[in-house]
Amino acid sequence: MKGGLSNVWFDRFKISNDCPEHLESIDRMCQVLTELIDDEVKNGIQKSRILVGGFSMGGCMALHLAYRNHRDVAGVFALSSFLNKESAVYKDLQQSDGTLPELFQCHGTADDLVLHSWGKETNSNLKSLGVSTVFHSFPTLYHELNRTELERLKSWILTKLPGEIDGQNK
């Protein structure tokens, strides 16, 4: 934002995959989001029926939340998102074993804010660490969403959480 303040999920030193993560702000937001998950569980939602995800920085936040703190959620989606090359997520996954939530990831090839190659590299790194992944590239898509992407996400969600409420899976 060229030095201007903005509302974001966490602090970044810069928009690049080749710099340190601002872990203090990421961990602070993970605590806030953990409280939301805990509230849902207290209200009767099984954690195995909770998906976390987001667009851009929200997708990065979901990757941290799920793979560092909540490996028992139903799945993760990250749209136009990436992890830094030396991400704490990778370090945590190197020391883990057990089942990990599936990742659904999409990225536009024309994205000039969050490069497609960063998203693809993130996906490859997570896959090498045991995450089952799905990655969709969208030619000519910039840092934005499109209908096809959202339809694929919807289909993926319905396979992860089938039969939630009869008649409402349309």
Rank of each mutant, 00 (worst) to 15 (best):
W9Y: 00
F10C: 01
F10S: 10
R12S: 06
R12I: 08
N17D: 12
N17G: 11
P20K: 08
E21F: 00
H22T: 04
H22V: 06
L23D: 13
S25R: 15
I26C: 01
D27Y: 13
M29C: 07
L36M: 11
I37Q: 00
V41F: 01
V41E: 01
K42I: 11
N43K: 15
G44P: 02
Q46S: 13
Q46V: 01
K47H: 01
S48G: 02
I50C: 04
G53A: 02
S56T: 06
M57K: 03
G58Y: 03
M61F: 09
M61V: 05
L63W: 02
L65T: 02
A66M: 00
A66D: 00
Y67M: 07
R68E: 15
R71F: 05
D72K: 09
V73R: 00
L79G: 06
S80V: 05
S80I: 02
L83N: 05
A88L: 11
V89G: 00
Y90L: 07
K91R: 09
D92Y: 14
Q94A: 03
Q94V: 09
G98M: 03
G98K: 01
T99W: 14
T99K: 14
L100T: 11
P101D: 10
Q105W: 11
Q105G: 03
C106S: 15
H107D: 02
A110S: 06
D112H: 13
L113D: 05
G119Q: 04
N123W: 08
N123T: 10
N125H: 14
K127D: 15
L129K: 06
L129F: 04
L129Q: 05
V131N: 05
V131R: 07
S132E: 15
V134P: 06
F135A: 05
H136F: 13
F138S: 01
P139V: 07
P139A: 09
P139W: 12
T140G: 11
T140N: 12
L141T: 04
N146V: 15
N146Y: 12
R147T: 14
R147V: 15
